[in-house]
Each structure stands twice: as structure tokens, then as C-alpha cells.
Computed example of a mutant assay.
Amino acid sequence: MPKLVDHAERRDRIIRAAWRIIAERGIDAATMREIAREAGYANGALTHYFADKDSLLRAAYEYVYAATNQRVAVSVHGLTGVEALRAFCREVLPLDDLTVDEARVVLAVWSRMTVDADLLDVHAASMRAWRDDIVRWLGEGRALGRVRSGTADEVLADHLITLLMGAQVLVLSGDVAGPSAQEQLLEEWLGRLGRP
């Protein structure tokens, strides 16, 4: 009887292998051969799922974004306004080993965006979706009287995304942006929302 292959599971295994290599050893170490070895497959097996390294890197980036969004969905469930914003930010900020590894993957993939228009489109769509959520939560905060800032919600959303993306970069420099520093920065930013 022929062996049944779960193609979705195999594709996911390859993506997770790429993610681990990038997080642990950097993007240069993530060759197709090394990813295949890490996933436990022959080098040629990857071409059945990914045309080239760029398509695999896009999938690794999408994997990080999807994993973050799954955590966000759980964390913000039942929350609105500023509380939802805080929960969202705590899932995006690199505050623990997992999210620091995700930051390493994201930063490695960002460097490819200058030459990969498809990857840039994936990133832009991700940031638009987050921005829309942030604007919605800010609006809820205004309706509840918790957001009183005179700055437009769209501008506040851009500020917050900049803070979150900056933390992805700075966390790799060590104590400069460790978890306690990030949490303090977040709380100060959220606290300013209540000031007219």
C-alpha cells in the first residue's frame, strides 16, 4: 500500500525548521540544504513545497505573524479599549524567549524586503491589519473615556506600531530594551492616552 503523505504537515514542518535556523543561527545559515536537514527531509523534498528560498522566507514570516495573531486573539478575548491594546502589545513585544526568537526571524526577513516586492506586500498587509485593530481599540477607549488624547487615533496607531517595531530591533542589543524596559515604555505610552 502506498504511504500517505500529509502535505500540510510536511510544509509546516519545513517552515518551522526554517524558523528555528533563522532564530538560532541567522538568515545566512538558512540554506535550502540546511533547512531540509533540520526538517528531516532530502534537499529535493523542499522544492515540492517552495519554489525557492524567498518563498520559504515569506512563509516563515507569515508563520510568525499568524502565531502572534493567534496569541493576540486569545489574549484580547473579552477585552476592549486600552485593556485590549495592552494585551495586544504584550503579545507583539519581544518579552520572552519565544517572542525574542520571533523578533530575530522578523528582523532577518525585513532585510530581504528591499529586494522582494512580494515580501514587502505581505509585511504591509500585516501592518495594515494591526493598525486597523489598534485604531478600533483606541476608538473603544475614547467611547469609554479612557482615551482623551487630542492626537488622532490613526496617528496614535502609527506611534504604537513604531514603538512595537522598534522594540523588535532594540531587544537584540540586550539590556537596552529588556522586558522590564519594554513594559515600562508600554505603560508610559498607554498612560499618556488618558491625558487631554
Score class of each variant (00 low, 15 high):
W19K: 14
R146Q: 14
V76H: 08
R37W: 11
V106C: 05
L56K: 05
A39F: 11
D54Y: 03
R192V: 00
A59N: 11
R20I: 01
R136Q: 13
R142F: 02
E91A: 08
L138H: 14
Q184K: 10
S180T: 14
W189Y: 15
D28T: 02
Y65E: 13
P2M: 12
L163G: 02
Q168N: 13
G150Q: 05
V115I: 11
G81Q: 08
A36P: 03
Y65P: 00
E38F: 02
G141E: 08
G150C: 06
M1F: 11
E38S: 03
S55I: 04
L138M: 14
D158T: 10
H123L: 00
M1Y: 11
L172I: 08
S75Y: 04
V82P: 07
S75E: 13
L98Q: 13
A45F: 09
R148D: 04
V109L: 13
A103Q: 04
H48W: 12
L95N: 01
L57S: 01
I134L: 10
G166C: 02
M165W: 10
E140I: 04
I161M: 15
M165H: 11
H7T: 15
Q168I: 07
E62V: 04
V76I: 15
V92Y: 15
D52Y: 01
T151M: 15
A66N: 09
E187A: 09
A67Y: 08
L95Q: 03
P179L: 00
L119F: 00
L85R: 07
Q182F: 00
L119S: 00
L193Y: 09
K3G: 00
R86S: 14
A17T: 12
W189V: 01
N69Y: 04
R131H: 13
D12Y: 09
G78D: 01
R195E: 14
E24D: 15
E188R: 12
L98M: 06
V105D: 07
L46G: 02
P94C: 06
L193A: 11
G26F: 06
T99C: 02
D158Y: 06
P2S: 15
D96Y: 00
R71A: 12
L156A: 12
H48E: 07
V106I: 14
E183G: 02
F88E: 08
G178P: 04
